[in-house]
Nucleic acid binder design. Structure first.
Lengths: 106, 106
DNA sequence: AATTTGCGCAACTAAATGGTTGCGTATATA
DNA sequence: TATATACGCAACCATTTAGTTGCGCAAATT
């Protein structure tokens, strides 16, 4: 049952929830209204997102507002960073080849 | 059965495979040797990665080499981009508040 | 004080997932 | 030509997942 950030964002509904609460804090009911799901289903998703520390809660009376916590999102970015470097070097290699072709054509 | 990039990278083994073949093309057997899994299991993961266009095949005799295709990876980056903007504006807002506090203190 | 509302939690269900085993086929090697 | 190797594919199995239903509790409304 140990879940990580990558599993958290794997579900499309969860990604939509993330996007929704990124702009403003919302209650489970308010979130559910935006989708074709029940409050309970949303609640479960929020539970998972909370577990993965992508989301923070803020109680206000009997209502609970959920907000996005950007910190963990950066982990995904960090993972992508590895490949960016590889791509860049690949592209550079490609550039060199193209440049060579260009010059030999002349 | 319709899978997307986010589901593809949800599995830790799949992420490891991606990282592995990012540096050099590899056959399913060679990949499997790096993990505690069977060739068939790896093959299934590669199938999913191919389905999501994260991976490309290159046949060489009876061997099939798999390579990373960076194009789809950028989709993840694009998705993250949305939030980066929000974070930045949030930080800017925070900066303003801090600046205000600073000036009123004087 | 009684009722409504917002929520989390637990039990349950159908579907998806990751894995195994056992094939068939094509290429390489003896 | 016979055998070994590399692989994909299909059937099968255990576990996880996303979702529903039905509670119970606390805060708000009447």
């Amino acid at each position: 049952m140990k879940r990580d950030v990558f599993q958290a964002i794997a579900d499309p509904t969860r990604r939509a929830i993330i996007l929704l609460i990124a702009f403003q804090a919302m209650t489970p009911n308010a979130i559910a209204e935006h989708f074709d799901t029940s409050r309970q289903a949303v609640s479960k998703h929020l539970q998972i997102l909370t577990e993965c520390q992508l989301v923070k809660q803020e109680q206000s009376g009997r209502e609970i507002y959920y907000t996005l916590d950007g910190t963990k999102m950066k982990e995904i970015d960090k993972w992508l960073e590895q490949f960016k470097k590889i791509w860049e070097s690949r592209f550079n290699e490609l550039d060199k080849v193209l440049l060579k072709l260009k010059s030999t054509k002349k």
